[in-house]
């Protein structure tokens, strides 16, 4: 299976800084790819730094593992150690710079290999799988609101109105950096989409599919989502990393 990956992050129409960070790499020889999106928080300097540390650490620790040809059973452990290291580095920066004391970040990553992908996430950045006519969210938001939807306190459609809808129950930079893992099976033609919450807030999910179906390449698919969010006045930073399989 061959992969094509593209990504883009944009400050949006309202924010002064971009606290999202993205990266990806494809190892054609081993037929593997790594995609990552992080959404920082805790003041704009802190947010920028936390998401950058997270993405850089993940790439530093995991990109070599793609070429090494690491057996699948060791991948979760490797991913978790990369996240633990990112968490430690964020902690160190917090101690060094009191201004950054509240910094943290979400993270979502996909380690794609053959016809499957290992997903790991902390926070409310998401991974979606796009198959022919369907779009599935493959991650569960670590948010107060998600917990309230699940315990029946509120209905899903009421979630956007709850004032603390952005409060995370887990994040890199908080005490516990344990990620939630998932596996996805990929068929030829499937796409994997990683995004920050800026995309969900700006552009309705129903519109993603149309825009992606009309796109001629993975790059134009990414641009269609970002441009679409900006047309809708994206208040938050918007980030997308998209993988297409052939």
């Amino acid at each position: 299976m061959e992969y094509m990956v593209s990504g883009r992050t944009d400050t949006g129409t309202l924010r002064k800084s971009n606290q999202d960070a993205i990266d990806w790499c494809v190892d054609e020889r081993s037929g593997q790819a790594l995609l990552v999106v992080a959404d920082g928080m805790g003041g704009y300097e802190g947010g920028e730094e936390a998401s950058r540390i997270a993405v850089d650490t993940v790439m530093e620790m995991l990109a070599p593992a793609l070429t090494e040809g690491m057996p699948p059973e060791f991948r979760r452990e490797r991913v978790q150690s990369a996240l633990d290291l990112a968490s430690e580095r964020i902690e160190v920066r917090k101690v060094q710079a009191p201004d950054l004391a509240r910094m943290g970040t979400t993270i979502v990553l996909a380690w794609v290999s053959g016809n499957s992908a290992l997903l790991a996430h902390i926070g409310d950045s998401r991974c979606y799988q796009l198959q022919q006519d369907t779009l599935h969210c493959m991650t569960r938001d670590d948010t107060v609101v998600q917990s309230m939807v699940e315990d029946g306190s509120i209905r899903e459609q009421d979630a956007p109105n709850v004032p603390f809808r952005n409060v995370l129950t887990r994040a890199l930079g908080a005490a516990d950096a344990t990620a939630t893992f998932g596996e996805v099976s990929l068929a030829s033609g499937d796409q994997l989409l990683l995004c920050s919450d800026g995309l969900m807030e700006a552009l309705a999910e129903e519109e993603w599919h149309t825009r992606l179906l009309q796109a001629e390449s993975v790059q134009s698919g990414v641009n269609a989502l970002i441009e679409g969010s900006l047309e809708k006045g994206a208040k938050d930073n918007v980030s997308v990393v998209l993988l297409s399989t052939v």
Partner: peptide, 13 residues
């Protein structure tokens, strides 16, 4: 009390 809540994302530690 609701008005006092932060509107931006933050972590529950």
């Amino acid at each position: 009390d609701e008005n006092a809540m932060e509107k931006t994302a933050y972590i529950l530690d």
